[in-house]
C-alpha cells in the first residue's frame, strides 16, 4: 500500500511508463475542471496494472495521457524514459466498444495496425497475403475466432467483436497494451470467458498492460497490481498487489483471499466517495 503509487522499489530507469506529478484540467462551461490532480505512478515493463474507481475519476484520462491522445496540463509523462510523443512507441489499445471498421473483414481489421505502424507499414503490401495474414489468423485462433477472418463485423456477436478488438490491439506486438473497459459492455459469462483469454494472451506475449475498469473482480482476476482512484479531483489513493498464482481460474475468485481483496478495494472506493 503506497498512496503515491510510485511502485515500491521501482527505479525511474526501470519503469516503462512513469507519470510524474501529472495533472489534467480542461475548460468546461466557463470554469476549470480538474480531471486529474497531481498524480504519480511508475509501471514496470511486463507488468499488468489495473486502474479502478468510480466513473469520472480520471481513469481513462491516464490512458489517454500515456498514449499521447491528450496532453498534461502540468507534470511529465515518460514512456521508456523519454517524454511521451518524443519517440514512437508501439501501443495497442482496446476500447469499451469494439470500434472495428465496418467495411473491413475481421482479418483486415486485425491487420490494420500493421498497415499503419512502422516498421510493419513498409512491408504491408508485400506481406499482407502471407506473413501478416498468418499472424492475424494465429491471433484470431488463439482467441477462439479461427475461421472468422473473412466475416464482416456485423456478422459477429458483441463478445466475438471484442475478441477481435483484442487481436487488433496485439497484432503489432505493442510494448504497451491499453485496455479501456474492454469487457464493460459484455454479459457476465462472456466477460469471464474473455478474462481467461486476456490472461492467456498476457502470459504468452508479456506486453505491459494498463487496464481501466470499474469491475473490481475483473481487476483482481487479471492484474498484478491494482491502483484505486478517487473522483473529483481524480487521483490515486491506493496501490496494492494481487498476488495470486497464474493461471487464475474463475473458481479462485471465490477463495477468501480473493474476496478479501475485492472487499477491501470496495471499501476504499466507498470511503473515498463518502469523503468527497
Amino acid at each position: 500500500m503506497n498512496a503515491s503509487a510510485l511502485a515500491p522499489g521501482l527505479l525511474r530507469e526501470e519503469a516503462l511508463v512513469e507519470l510524474e506529478n501529472v495533472s489534467v484540467a480542461y475548460n468546461g462551461g466557463g470554469k476549470t475542471v480538474t480531471a486529474l490532480a497531481e498524480t504519480s505512478i511508475r509501471i514496470a515493463p511486463g507488468d499488468f496494472v489495473a486502474l479502478v474507481g468510480p466513473s469520472g475519476c480520471g481513469k481513462s484520462t491516464i490512458l489517454k495521457l500515456v498514449t499521447g491522445l491528450i496532453r498534461a496540463s502540468s507534470g511529465f509523462v515518460f514512456v521508456s524514459g523519454r517524454e511521451v510523443g518524443a519517440e514512437p512507441m508501439r501501443v495497442g489499445m482496446a476500447f469499451q466498444n469494439p470500434t472495428l471498421l465496418p467495411w473491413l473483414t475481421i482479418r483486415d481489421n486485425v491487420m490494420l495496425p500493421l498497415k499503419i505502424v512502422p516498421p510493419f507499414r513498409g512491408e504491408f503490401r508485400a506481406k499482407r497475403n502471407t506473413e501478416f495474414r498468418d499472424r492475424a489468423d494465429a491471433l484470431l485462433s488463439q482467441v477462439g475466432l479461427a475461421g472468422f477472418g473473412e466475416r464482416f463485423p456485423w456478422q459477429l456477436s458483441g463478445g466475438m467483436l471484442q475478441r477481435a478488438s483484442l487481436c487488433r490491439a496485439l497484432v503489432h506486438d505493442p510494448q504497451l497494451l491499453m485496455l479501456d473497459e474492454p469487457f464493460g459492455a459484455l454479459d457476465q459469462f462472456t466477460r469471464e470467458e474473455l478474462w481467461a483469454i486476456m490472461q492467456e494472451l498476457w502470459m504468452t506475449r508479456k506486453p505491459t498492460v494498463l487496464l481501466v475498469t470499474h469491475d473490481l473482480k475483473e481487476a483482481a482476476f487479471l492484474a498484478n497490481r491494482i491502483c484505486v482512484m478517487q473522483a473529483r479531483p481524480g487521483r490515486i489513493i491506493d496501490d496494492s498487489a494481487a498476488p495470486f498464482a497464474r493461471p487464475r481460474t474463475i473458481e479462485m475468485s471465490y477463495t477468501p483471499e480473493f474476496v478479501a481483496l475485492t472487499q477491501r478495494l470496495r471499501d476504499l472506493i466507498f470511503a473515498a466517495r463518502g469523503a468527497a
Binding site: T67, G68, L69, P88, V91, M93, F95, N97, T99, L101, L112, P113, I116, V117, R168, H172, M178
Partner: peptide, 14 residues
C-alpha cells in the same frame, strides 16, 4: 465520422 474510430488510428500514431 465517429471519434472512436479516429481514436483507434490516433493511438497508433497514424
Amino acid at each position: 465520422t465517429e471519434p472512436e474510430l479516429e481514436d483507434v488510428m490516433r493511438c497508433l500514431r497514424a
